[in-house]
C-alpha cells in the first residue's frame, strides 16, 4: 500500500478541496467563503480562536451540517448533496478524533475502537476485537483496558482510545478536532507523536483544527489561519513565524494587543 506522496505527485492531486463554503445560523454568519485544499498524504492544521468557525467547517465536510453555499470535493467528487448510502460510503474514507473523545459510554473500550469495523464494515466481532486490541497497543494502551468502560479511563487515555477509533478502519482522511485540548503538556506531546505516527503509517491526509501552537507546529505540513469565517493566511508550517500577516503574528504571540479584538 505504499503511496507516492512526493510533492510532484501531489501537486495537482488534491484529496480534499473546499471552495467558497458559506454557513450561517440565522444572522450569525459563521463561514464566509472558506477555501482550503489539502493534497494527498499531507497534514493541514487550521488555527484560529474560539468561535471563528473551525468546528463548523469540519462538520460541513463530514455532512453533519449542510453548507449554505460552496463546494466540498473529496477525490474530485462533489459531496455536499450526498445523503443516505452514498454519504455512508463516503464516510468510510474518514476518521475523526473528537475534542472530548466522544466515546460511547455504553460500550466497552474495544467495542468503541471496533465500532467502525463492526457497524460500518460488517466485520466479524472476534476479528474486529483483535484489530481493536492491536490499535489500542499502537496508541500505547495495554490489552487489559479493552474490557473497561470509557468512564473508567483518564482524559489522556480516553483521547488515545479516540485516536485508536479514528484510525481503526484505516481511513484515507483523518480529522483531529482540538486533539490536545484539556491535556497536560507532556500528554499533549505524546498525542502529537501518536497522531504523526498513525497518519504516516496509514499515508492518510489529515486536517486538524487547534489553537495549540505547539501542536500545530509539530503535526502540520501546512498551516492555515481562519478568522471570522475566512481563511486569512495559508502557508508552510516552517513559514508560520514570518508570515507577514499581523493576525497570524498576534495569534502565535498569544497577545491581546493587535488587530484581533476579543469580545469581552
Amino acid at each position: 500500500m505504499a503511496q507516492d506522496t512526493s510533492p510532484a505527485a501531489n501537486a495537482n492531486n488534491p484529496k480534499l478541496v473546499l471552495s467558497g463554503v458559506y454557513k450561517s445560523f440565522g444572522n450569525n454568519h459563521v463561514l464566509r467563503g472558506v477555501d482550503i485544499s489539502i493534497n494527498k498524504g499531507k497534514s493541514l492544521v487550521v488555527i484560529g480562536g474560539s468561535g471563528t468557525g473551525k468546528s463548523v467547517m469540519i462538520k460541513c465536510v463530514l455532512g453533519l451540517l449542510s453548507p449554505d453555499k460552496g463546494s466540498i470535493r473529496v477525490d474530485g467528487e462533489e459531496t455536499t448533496q450526498l445523503s443516505g448510502k452514498e454519504r455512508d460510503a463516503l464516510m468510510r474514507k474518514f476518521g475523526m478524533l473528537f475534542q472530548g473523545g466522544a466515546l460511547f459510554d455504553s460500550l466497552t473500550i474495544w467495542e468503541n475502537v471496533a465500532f467502525g469495523l463492526v457497524q460500518g464494515k460488517a466485520m466479524d466481532r472476534r476479528q474486529a476485537k483483535e484489530i481493536a486490541i492491536e490499535k489500542l497497543r499502537s496508541v500505547g494502551l495495554p490489552e487489559r483496558v479493552a474490557n473497561l468502560f470509557p468512564a473508567e479511563l483518564s482524559g489522556g487515555m480516553q483521547k488515545r482510545v479516540g485516536l485508536a477509533r479514528a484510525v481503526a478502519t484505516n481511513p484515507e482522511i483523518i480529522f483531529f478536532d482540538e486533539p490536545t485540548t484539556g491535556l497536560d503538556p507532556i500528554m499533549a506531546d505524546v498525542i502529537n507523536d501518536l497522531i504523526i505516527e498513525a497518519s504516516k503509517k496509514l499515508g492518510a491526509t489529515t486536517l486538524s483544527i487547534t489553537h495549540d501552537m505547539a501542536s500545530a507546529r509539530k503535526i502540520a505540513d501546512d498551516i492555515a489561519m481562519i478568522y471570522k469565517g475566512e481563511i486569512i493566511w495559508q502557508g508552510k508550517a516552517a513559514d508560520i513565524d514570518h508570515s507577514g500577516n499581523e493576525y497570524v503574528e498576534q495569534f502565535i504571540r498569544g497577545s491581546a494587543e493587535g488587530p484581533i479584538r476579543m469580545e469581552v
Partner: peptide, 22 residues
C-alpha cells in the same frame, strides 16, 4: 441528550452509522 452534547451522535455518523437506525 447526553450523547448529543458529548458529540457521540456526531461520532456515530462519522463511523458510517445512521443515528436514526442505531
Amino acid at each position: 441528550g447526553t450523547m448529543r452534547v458529548t458529540e457521540q451522535i456526531d461520532a456515530l455518523t462519522t463511523l458510517s452509522t445512521n443515528p436514526y437506525k442505531y
